[in-house]
Amino acid sequence: MTKTLLEIKDLSRFFTLSKGQVLEAVNGVSFDIHQGETFGLVGESGCGKSTLGRTVVGLYPPTKGKVIFDGIDVAGSKSQTQKMELSRRMQMIFQDPYTSLNPRMKVMDIIAEGIDNHHMAASRSERNQMVLDLLHSVGLDEEHANRYPHEFSGGQRQRVGIARALSVNPDFIVADEPISALDVSIQAQVVNLMKHLQETRNLTYLFIAHDLSMVKYISNRIGVMYLGNLVELASSDELFKNPLHPYTSALLSAIPLPDPKVERNRSRIVLEGNVKSPINLPKNCHFCTRCPKKQAICEREVPELKEVSPGHFVACHLIR
């Protein structure tokens, strides 16, 4: 058994919108991430996956529960040294390549920010050399160092964002929808780059996305979220071969495959209705309004996440 790098324990993050209106973005989610693995987190917009990612790295304080990274409580009180250690070891890659780079800074300075903050380079020339090495490792070169972000294409910007995250030699990276704003051919580039970097630098990823096929390709294990809850968790092969939660099945069935012959003979589970508003949710299975297999109990009780076979967890009343 590999070492557990990150523990998420009963994590909740609520936002109070106005009096009496509470948005339960993340509600009681628990899972572990092992050293060296990629944990994929999927779900539709508004399911709380990005909030979870930001809470994990400490950008939002949790409302309830804990995030423990290698023995350190991310949200707890820490000494300055611990804070700096966390900021060196945990990094994030962002979704929007257009707003994730400061438009007034040159790429060189964007990437060097972490190196400067952590005093990782002894001299100016060492610092610049480190930036160039980072640029090379994401497939860019000197030519790009003195340019401003707006001169780059979306895929190139995303790679600058990756180089920035790598600059402090982190152990763990949260990738918050890093490919959803990119073109198809560029998505594969970025995902392959991330895979390659994981092997060469021994990284652990929390990979958040809504594109299931890419998540399956990069992840070892996958968690599926629906309206703030984790509804299913399994190894990626298991999840795709044997989805248990009705939502997971519908999600998988909804992906259009780039294969006309398969598409012609496919019968789809098309879900009725829409996702509920995440404000003031009732205490029941949040999927019950759209579930094709709904029963009376689903409207009354919150299903718990249970392990149904080794490593395969699901939160559904129908599965015992």
Binding site: E44, H210, L251, V270
Partner: peptide, 10 residues
């Protein structure tokens, strides 16, 4: 979203 996309395509 994917599930809504499936509805619209159908």
């Amino acid at each position: 979203d994917v599930t809504i996309q499936a509805q619209i395509l159908e």
